[in-house]
Design a protein around this nucleic acid. Structure first.
Lengths: 218, 218
DNA sequence: CTATTTATGGAGTATCTACTCCATAAAGAT
DNA sequence: ATCTTTATGGAGTAGATACTCCATAAATAG
């Protein structure tokens, strides 16, 4: 007889009390299963990740899978969230630090080079290259991924605006343009990482991108 | 009764003579069918382009398709060739012109921005984003696409070496590094085009990338 | 205790996807 | 005319893919 030590479904009750949920407790760790699925999607993309492979790495039967996650698409959306708060966390973290905006973007480029090539997960980025070639009936997923990518550009813009407020970027500067450029370099680095480019190569690309920083001689 | 006016199969004979091939002539224009298939692959990627959609736009029955093209994968490889000599022709063309290497890369960036956003075909590039998320049993296609991408980087390197020979780039310069950078920007522009970035946006990204050109104050 | 709720095991399935088969048609070769 | 070669029409198919069903198990609620 199995005992569920990690997969206990907890429920936050009204007055802050925590109790076990009703019904039979699940026998697997939902968070761990999601993490494994996320890595398959990261490596294979949405279409490339087959249902059988997903439930295999998650260690689930079809019924347990559908009971816990609903559908392949719902799982994918959750997996994107898990990526953003997990392996993708380098992105907001690198931007968040203090100092001039250019320093933040230098950190971002170096962190991107590292994250796209480390052995924590597949090469490249789960966000940059997903949902780009889907059939018309998957327009919703495509839109979703575009919005996620737009979110990272928004983070860049906000950090650049902070630089304008702090005086390290001039008032009239086109922050959207700078964000577009660095987003483009990031997406391109994801392609290069998929094709096998190593960390040092990506770091040099990132350093060169910084040479395009406005108003600074190289 | 149909007559085959454009799809006649010609054969180049030994002494330069041209004669019709043996067997029943095909009733469709192979080149035109390939071109239509290429655009579907361009838009959907390899996996996203279904067999039924391909033969529908090509106007072929399954038997005519297999007789003429062999398999979906063989068709794809031919379609990549058709892209490279067709819509992808802007790439070697922009690099080929005379003048300093930097001018050639400026032309390349502007031509890329135009090609990725014109209404001749789907947004973006057929080469940049294909074969990046395939299952292990499609490793051959993935390798093929990586080699095609490597080919474009090689063209860049050759053009940069020409600049070194012509004296517009200094002797010790890292041409591979510059090529890596501009390839990365190109691949990233393909992602941005897929997400809806317009020509002007891509042109500004390309112009900013040129600001990273070595040894030149922005 | 019974009722209710949630999870699981395991077999089953509609649809799609890329491909195959074969009888027939239309050309050149002899 | 006959043979060979290549193309076509149209039905058919093995395997994969994402998903469903249902009987049963294990928890809480009352």
């Amino acid at each position: 007889m199995l005992t569920a030590t990690k997969g206990l479904t907890m429920v936050i009750k009204g007055e802050g009390q925590v109790s076990r949920a009703r019904g039979r407790p699940r026998l697997f760790d939902r968070t761990a299963a999601l993490d494994r699925a996320m890595r398959v999607f990261w490596d294979r993309g949405y279409e490339g990740a087959t249902f059988d492979e997903l439930i295999a790495v998650m260690g689930l039967s079809p019924s347990s899978f559908y009971n816990a996650f609903g559908s392949k698409e719902a799982l994918y959306r959750e997996a994107v969230g898990a990526y953003l708060t997990g392996p993708g966390g380098f992105f907001p973290k690198a931007l968040a630090g203090g100092g001039p905006a250019k320093d933040a973007f230098a950190r971002l480029m170096m962190a991107t080079a590292a994250a796209y090539t480390d052995d924590v997960g597949p090469a490249g980025c789960m966000i940059s290259l997903a949902g780009l070639h889907d059939a018309p009936d998957r327009a919703d997923l495509r839109d979703f991924m575009r919005e996620v990518r737009e979110g990272s550009r928004t983070l860049m813009i906000e950090r650049l605006n902070e630089g304008v407020r702090n005086g390290d970027l001039s008032e009239g500067i086109d922050v959207a343009q700078i964000a577009e450029f660095f987003e483009t370099v990031s997406r391109g680095m994801a392609v290069r990482a998929r094709d096998g480019a190593d960390r040092r190569t990506l770091e040099k690309i990132g350093a060169m991108a910084l040479d395009a920083w406005p108003g600074v001689p190289s």
